[in-house]
């Protein structure tokens, strides 16, 4: 246990990154907020906090998959908006819910294939996808509205065993990602591919017999599927389809992963760090809301935070 905790503060010989620092930040933030405000430590606020944090947490976990292989997915926000728009269409839930995940999987598949087979830079490919998908979403639902299937609303807003439903969404998302990243060959191969990319040896993983292209494509599919899950959750929360609800979500997701010690050059990152990163962003938002800080300033502060965090992670490569 001690050795595991210590590894969170060392940049050496660990593919997990500096996740100990965000852990300390979370503890400090919780302590400060509890002491400084009376509202923070209430049952109501904590339940609210979990529900607010969940979409970002799920989207950040998805983003982690592609960041590990040295990629980036800027279409996450559009996938989220698109998912809420699909769910608000006039059709039974048994059709809509599978449709969301099939379509999102398709988006990830296209992203992955364009990047690996057609040799397009991930940022350009997913940026183009962001635009195309946003356009389609605005055709489906020009302004927010429509009805969301009741089953999703109950699955998001209700409670079970005395705990609010969002907690279970988090447990399922984290459990699924933990299994994929740490319990399968797929996860191991992702770290292998990313480590090679970060070291400037793109062929390293291929030389060890890893099917690089296929694993990268699957990472983008996973990212889109998690984004869709975040979209489904958000739809249940806002109870309508909204073409703008996912705006800038991809950047928050990247910020969360980066705060959690994930390095954008690939190969280094961890699920627990990313979860901590999302929790930090949620705690900050919660604290700033209680302090009545304008949402515009909050956006600016998040941008500054992202800049500061990535500024501290030095890498070899210059450019994109």
């Amino acid at each position: 246990m001690i050795a595991f905790l210590r590894s969170g503060f060392s940049t050496r010989r660990s593919r997990n990154g500096l996740w100990g620092v965000p852990l300390v930040i979370v503890v400090l933030l919780v302590a400060v907020l509890t002491l400084a405000t009376e509202q923070f430590a209430t049952r109501e606020n904590l339940f609210n906090l979990v529900a607010q944090a969940m979409p970002l947490l799920i989207a950040a976990i998805g983003q982690l998959f592609v960041i590990i292989v040295g990629g980036l997915d800027l279409s996450v926000g559009s996938v989220i908006s698109f998912s809420t728009a699909i769910l608000s269409l006039d059709a039974p839930a048994v059709v809509l819910i599978p449709a969301v995940f099939v379509l999102a999987g398709l988006v990830g598949l296209i992203n992955g294939l364009v990047i690996t087979r057609l040799n397009v830079h991930p940022i350009i490919a997913t940026l183009a996808m962001q635009y195309i998908l946003l356009g389609i979403t605005r055709i489906l639902r020009p302004v927010s509205g429509g009805d969301i299937p009741q089953i999703i609303i109950s699955a998001v807003q209700g409670s079970f065993l005395g705990l609010p439903m969002p907690v279970f969404w988090g447990v399922i998302a984290i459990g699924l990602a933990a299994k994929l990243l740490y319990g399968t060959r797929f996860g191991l191969h992702l770290f292998g591919i990313g480590g090679g990319v970060a070291a400037g040896m793109e062929d390293a993983a291929r030389n060890f017999g890893i099917r690089v292209d296929r694993n990268i494509v699957l990472a983008y599919v996973a990212c889109s599927l998690f984004a869709a899950l975040a979209g489904v959750f958000l739809a249940g929360r806002i109870v309508s389809g909204d073409p703008n609800v996912g705006l800038l979500f991809e950047l928050d997701a990247i910020t969360a992963a980066a705060i959690g010690g994930t390095q954008l050059s690939g190969g280094v990152g961890s699920l627990h760090g990313t979860v901590l990163g999302a929790v930090i962003l949620a705690l900050l938002a919660n604290g700033m809301n209680m302090a009545n800080i304008s949402p515009f300033v909050q956006t600016a502060i998040k941008g500054g935070l992202l800049l500061a965090i990535v500024g501290l992670q030095s890498r070899k490569k210059m450019g994109l």
């Binding site: 950047l251 980066a258 954008l264 300033v297 941008g303 500054g304 500024g311 030095s314």
Partner: peptide, 26 residues
């Protein structure tokens, strides 16, 4: 940030844009 700190140019310039937009809107 891009040349000396070696930070991803997309992230840096997007973050700068977000900060400026947030500032103006505020």
């Amino acid at each position: 940030m891009v040349a000396k700190r070696r930070v991803s140019a997309v992230i840096v310039t997007l973050a700068v844009s977000i900060i400026l937009v947030g500032l103006v809107q505020f």
